[in-house]
Design a protein around this nucleic acid. Structure first.
Lengths: 238, 238
DNA sequence: CGACAGGTTGAAAACTATCAAACATTGTGG
DNA sequence: CCACAATGTTTGATAGTTTTCAACCTGTCG
C-alpha cells in the first residue's frame, strides 16, 4: 500500500548523518509518509506520540498552548528537519501542536521502529543528542531575549531568524517563504498582533520591510540587524 | 594527589543510571573533584569547556549574559545534578557562567574522558539524551511563561519551582535552602529587582511569604499556587 | 565605626496591552 | 460574476503594568 519512497529523502537529515546506505534504506522502510493540507494538524498537544517526524516538504508550525489558551510558537519546521521527537525521551505525549502552514509531506516513525533503529545504530542516538542539545541552546537564547529585550528588538530577531531559515531572494529584498501572519509573529515574540502590526507599519514607512497579508519581505536586512542589536540606526541606503 | 573518592557519589545521578559498579568506579576515577567557595565561578561563558560537571554538594547558579550585559538565570543546580554538559554536544564553549551561590563541591570530567566513557557505555548517551530532552521541555515551559504571563505570576512560578527543588520545612513554612537575592529572582523571571521587591512586600503583608536578606520562606504555598495558576485568591487560613 | 551589599518605597515615565472601530483581501455560494 | 462572510490587518484612544530614577533604609563585615 505504501507508495515507494526514495531513500534519498533522508540524505542530509542530521538525525541520520553517518548512516550507511543500507541503514538509510532500513530507516526509510520503517517510516510512514503522510500529506497534510495547509491548516491541518500533524499532531496535537497531549496526544500519545509517534516517535518522530521528519518534514520532506512544506512548512510546519510547532505551537504550545498554555492552561489559559495562550499560545506560543516554539518554532517553524522546514524540509529536512525532524520534529515531535521530544516526546520519546520524556513522557510519550506531544508537548505541543504541530500545524501545517503550507501543504506538507511528512514521514513518521512509530515508537517501536525508532527505538529499534536507535538500538541497532547508536550513531542515531548521538545525532539526536546533538540535535536536542542545539535546540536547547536555541530556546535558552530565545528565553534570554524574551526576558530582557523589548518588543521591537524581539520582533527584529524573530524575523531575522525566519530569514535565515526560510529566506528567499526576491527583487526587492528577502522574502520569508511561507505564510506568516501578524498573530504568528506575536506568538513567537510574546506580544500581541496589534503591537506587531504597529511595529511592521513603522518599519514599512522607513523602507525596512514590505509586508502584506501573511507575507513579509525584508528590504534592508542590515537595518533590521541594527535594530535587533540595538545599534545606532544607519543613515545610508542599505 | 587526588583525594580518594567514594564511588557512591555517583549513585542516583541520572546520567549514570543503569551503570554497573565497575563502570561507576571507572567514571569516578576519571573525574576531577574541586571545591568552590561561595561566590566563586565554576566556569565562565565563552571559555573552552570541560565535558561535564556534577555537583556533589552546595548550590550553583547558571547565568547567561547577553551582549549588553543583561543576565538571565537559567537554573540553579543542586547536589546530584549535572551541569555544563551542553557544550560537548555543540561548539565546545560554555554557553553561560556557573557561579557557586553556596560553598560547593563539584566533579568534572575532561572532554576526552567523557567521550571515552560514552563510547564504552552507550547507556550514558541514552541517559544524556533523556536529561537534555527533559531540560528542553522545562525551558520551553519557561519560555511560554515569560512570553505570556505577567510578572507576579512568573515570580510565583519561580518560587514554587525553587521550593520543589530546594525547599526545606521550617516552623513557619517552607524555606528556600540557599541564599537567593531579589536580583536573582528578577533574573529568573525577566523583571527587575524593584518589581520583585514590591511583589514580595505585597505577599509579605498578606502573610503568604516571609523574606529577608537573600532568604525566602513560603508560609502559604497554596496561596502562591493560586497566584501562579491565576485562581481566585483563597479566603481561609492556609 | 564606616563602607557596602542588599532591600524598600515613592513618583514619574515608558511601554505595551486592551478596547474599539474600520479597512482590505480572499474565497465561496448563490 | 457578485455579494458576503471570514480572516487578516491597521490605527486611534485609553488603561494598566512595569521600568526607571531617586532616595533612603538596614544589617553585615572588615
Amino acid at each position: 500500500m505504501a507508495p515507494p519512497l526514495d531513500p534519498a529523502v533522508l540524505r542530509g537529515m542530521p538525525l541520520f548523518a553517518g548512516l550507511d546506505a543500507d541503514a538509510m534504506a532500513e530507516a526509510v522502510a520503517l517510516a510512514r509518509p503522510r500529506r497534510h493540507a495547509r491548516g491541518a494538524a500533524v499532531f496535537t498537544q497531549g496526544e500519545a506520540a509517534a516517535a518522530g517526524h521528519a518534514l520532506i516538504d512544506g512548512r510546519v508550525k510547532i505551537v504550545q498552548t498554555g492552561p489559559d489558551g495562550q499560545q506560543v510558537v516554539m518554532r517553524f519546521i522546514g524540509p529536512g528537519e525532524m520534529f515531535g521527537t521530544l516526546a520519546i525521551f520524556t513522557d510519550g505525549l506531544y508537548p505541543a501542536d504541530a500545524v501545517a502552514v503550507a501543504d506538507s509531506v511528512e514521514l513518521s516513525w512509530p515508537a517501536a521502529a525508532m527505538t529499534d533503529l536507535m538500538e541497532r545504530h547508536p550513531v542515531i542516538v548521538r545525532n539526536a543528542l546533538s540535535i536536542v542539545g542545539g535546540r536547547l541552546r536555541e530556546v535558552q537564547h530565545r528565553l534570554r531575549e524574551v526576558a530582557t529585550e523589548r518588543v521591537e528588538r524581539r520582533v527584529a530577531h524573530a524575523l531575522l531568524r525566519l530569514v535565515r531559515q526560510a529566506g528567499r531572494r526576491v527583487e526587492t529584498g528577502v522574502e520569508i517563504d511561507f505564510p506568516l501572519s501578524r498573530q504568528d509573529v506575536a506568538e513567537m515574540t510574546g506580544t500581541t498582533l496589534h503591537t506587531v502590526s504597529r511595529t511592521l507599519s513603522a518599519w514599512e514607512s522607513q523602507g525596512i520591510v514590505e509586508s502584506g497579508r501573511q507575507q513579509v519581505v525584508i528590504r534592508k536586512p542590515h537595518a533590521l540587524v541594527a535594530i535587533a542589536e540595538d545599534l545606532p540606526p544607519l543613515r545610508s541606503g542599505d
